[in-house]
Amino acid sequence: MKYTDITDLLTQQEVISDEQCNTIHTAEATRRFSIHWELRTVLYLGVTLLSSGFGVVIYENINSIGHTVLIALISLVCLACFFFAFKHRKPFTWGENLTTTNLDDFALLSGCLAFLTLEGYLQYQYDLFGTRYGLAALIPAILFFGLAYIFDHRGVLSMAITALTYSIGISIIPVKMWETFDLESRHLIMNALIIGISLALTGWFSEYKNLKKHFLFTYLFFGGNLAFIAALAGLFTLDFKLIYLLITATLASVFVIYARRKQSYMYLLMAVIYGYIALTYIIFHSTTDEASFGYISIYFMFSAGLVTLLLLRVKKIIKAEKS
């Protein structure tokens, strides 16, 4: 069916007037083709190539170019980017800035990348922070949080969160997140749990108080995943499994409740998948004998079937909450 069929139907059912029908036809005929997102993606690629290329060049020529020259150069790039971004910034608001212009937020992003390069360089050459690596990651985290709120930039916010978790020694990037818990360190798991839960709470708070509530997704996604994975790591590797099981269960319940309130299925999916993993682990962990193949397959058969049926009905459950 073409769009003219829809306008015909709507005119025929007297939903729209002939005049409005004509307006729609004109709008469709003269519709612009937006290549906004394509250009944006290519620009990301370019910025990434550029900054990683420079990173390697600096690393390899660190002894042949003068340090002062290099530091001055990187600082200059960094300042120029921030200056451009500041010059074109939009008035601050606790709401969402809906106008997207490409260049100033890319300048901001490039400035942040240059700042990271600069800091890394200083640490490498002058041992600025000594062995306090945590501090080295905390400084960009604080700066980026500030910039994210001033410029209303979710990308910089996610960079800030990433830097924050580096400062306690955890890689939050989803693919790498699991590797960091190989260390079996109670200390690390506790830190991750605390940071994860605080991030999620920050997200909830900003939504509740209507302070940049569109940051909620970023906070809850990173915080939630971090907290869930830390809890699971605790469950798998540490003693007092009951505690970690309870933490996972609590987190899952909170996410389910939140999913019902926000009608968001992503939170629901997170709760279901992490909860299912925890439950499966604890069931097979607590059976003292080697579980036989038959029991395992029966367990998966019925549990997965049950979850599927639940998910098929979930729309009704969630809808019911709304009305």
Binding site: Y133, S158, M159, I173
Partner: peptide, 22 residues
């Protein structure tokens, strides 16, 4: 988009001997 951007932060703390980049 924000999730993708988080991937370009270099991990200085964990690779302390490796300058950012790379």
């Amino acid at each position: 988009e924000a999730l993708l951007i988080s991937r370009i932060v270099p991990d200085n703390a964990r690779q302390a001997d490796n300058i950012s980049g790379g």
